[in-house]
Design a protein around this nucleic acid. Structure first.
Lengths: 129, 129
DNA sequence: CTCCGTGCAAATACTTTGCAAAGCG
DNA sequence: CGCTTTGCAAAGTATTTGCACGGAG
């Protein structure tokens, strides 16, 4: 989890991740930043996402529908994933219970990820039509 | 979540998953069952894992190191994932707190997955060497 | 005869990696 | 000038899919 150097592209990825509410894929970030840096390559995005994750500056939400999702928000929170549209939303975690998981009999715990899956509001409405 | 028919290969996959404590990948299951059914193909394993998951007879633990892990244990529990060796172990969840997540403001929740990541006992020991 | 499950192989899709050129201090 | 970052394209890996065969009812 060493620090990471700065670079134009890396900083752009980091600040984009910090500024959006959604939980983007590498491709989404690539498409988005290409508006600003038309020569940005997808490989660079992947490389930097990994570097930033390793450095602990961002975190991975895990794989949703075959693509990894990233999150610039480091505060403790969970995620709600819609099975239908793939949207990922932040969920507040009740402090109770979760904290108790911090260390178990299996080893040293360094991260907790809580993922709820289901159908989001929008998709529930669509389904009723 | 419709029911699934029975078939020799599918049943074998299901009972293997129910009998093991680990949380296998498709490849591991394939290798294991090949001892019994030398003609079992990997495609069939993938196909049946998906069918069983859709039917709700098994569940996916999510992707660890690029491979999906499956679990035959349907009881509510979380998982501890070792960053170093990739081992996945069951974790008991404190009932408090988790139940409160059952429904949120984002939509209808149908599944909860809690994943702890860290270093397992074995890998902690190895690291001290 | 009909249908479902399967093996096999090809196709997909995401992600990683090697390399040479460009950039920064 | 040395070291890092990047674009590009090729490679790698996990998973899905199409198709034809084979067995059960």
């Amino acid at each position: 989890m060493g620090a990471v150097r700065k670079s134009v592209k890396r900083d752009a990825i980091l600040s984009l991740l910090r500024s959006v509410k959604c939980h983007p894929t590498a491709e989404w970030i690539h498409a988005e930043l290409r508006k600003l840096y038309p020569d940005l390559s997808l490989g660079t995005v992947y490389r930097n996402l990994r570097a930033l994750t390793d450095a602990g500056l961002i975190r991975s939400v895990g794989v949703v529908d075959g693509q990894e999702r990233f999150d610039g928000n480091l505060a403790a929170h969970g995620h709600f994933v819609c099975k239908s549209c793939g949207a990922v939303m932040d969920v507040e975690l009740p402090r109770t219970g979760i904290a108790a998981l911090a260390d178990g009999p299996h080893g040293h715990v360094t991260g907790v990820e809580v993922r709820l899956t289901g159908l989001c509001r929008e998709c529930m409405d669509k389904e009723t039509e």
